[in-house]
Simulated assay, not measured.
Amino acid sequence: MKQEKPMSSNTSLPFPDQQNSRNSMINIGEFILVSTPIGNLNDFSLRAKQTLQEVDILLCEDTRVTAKLLAAYGISVHMESVHEHNEGKRIQQIISWMQQGKKIALVSDAGTPLLSDPGYRVTRAIIEADLPITAIPGPNAALTALTLSGLPPHPYMFIGFPPPKSQARQNNFAILKASERAGLKATFIWHEAPHRLLDMLIDLKFIFGDNRPAAVARELTKKFEELQRNSIQGLIEHFTHTPPRGEITVLLGPALEEEEVSEDDLDQQLQGALKTMSVKDAAALVATAVHLPKKIVYQRALELSKK
């Protein structure tokens, strides 16, 4: 009988806790944020395609939308929906899948995930759980519009969608205007629904005036791509006669020159605000926009309301 060779004295074996730790690391999955086309399917990268072919689970904002992309590239993968209404409830399940060794990708309907799309809460939870995460960069409507707009490319501020209601939207714009008076000088970028575009442009002009360049990008990378560069008033006139359709990105550049608030400007803004607001609310809104003391603006609003 062949005698077994004794184990060398310098051969080391891992302690049980070390072995378990290594096994758990081997079984940990990966989370990948994958950018998808914003219109033209040919913008889908080779790396993004390969990633979706390899993952165990694909998280989608709308599985019906993503199914069209997968079909175009012959990709077959298990899909799960993650949208604004169920994102919080899916977090623990997603983390559990990763702890079981699943490789998971997340896509939005179009463009880079998380930017005005679901996924932030899931991504934040995975980071806090110290699980592996990476991203596949790709198309982005806001940055594509910025590069085509002719407006100063940096600094820029992407704000997402403005509030849908006019008063809340004006309040939001007034805060940005006040930030400008405090020293901020940037190109602002928003997404907007086509049926709200005109109302948004009117509110932009009301708060920011018309002394600055602006642009509206529509249907980027698609057949009917359009980019209108004009003043805010010019854009209002264009889209009054040509109703907008499709995916919209709005850009507003810094003022062309230093703005000073005259009495007429103050009165005009207050009169516009008083049409839909109380004296108190109108004064607060305009005071924020023009960066003047609230007491002074309130007193003037009170005088105008009596007239």
Rank of each mutant, 00 (worst) to 15 (best):
P153Y: 13
Q299C: 02
T144A: 15
Q3M: 11
S278N: 05
E260T: 13
E303M: 10
L201N: 08
S8K: 14
T249M: 02
P16L: 09
I104G: 01
F224W: 12
A282C: 06
K68F: 02
I232D: 02
V34I: 00
R212M: 07
P293M: 02
T134G: 13
S8G: 12
A283C: 02
A168D: 15
L13Q: 09
P163M: 06
Q100Y: 00
Q92C: 00
I189M: 13
P194Q: 11
S24E: 13
F31M: 00
Q19M: 09
D210E: 13
E4S: 13
R300M: 08
G183T: 06
E257Y: 11
Q3S: 11
L292F: 11
G160F: 11
M157Y: 14
E259F: 05
N211F: 04
F188N: 09
H191K: 07
P113K: 11
P155E: 09
W190M: 03
A72H: 14
E257V: 08
V65F: 04
Q19D: 06
P139A: 15
P254Q: 05
L46C: 00
E258K: 14
F161G: 11
T147S: 15
T36A: 01
P162T: 09
F188C: 07
F161Q: 14
I133H: 10
L33H: 04
I202T: 14
I38R: 05
K102W: 00
Y156A: 10
L198Q: 14
K222S: 09
E61Q: 04
K89W: 00
N42A: 09
A289E: 00
K89A: 11
A289L: 01
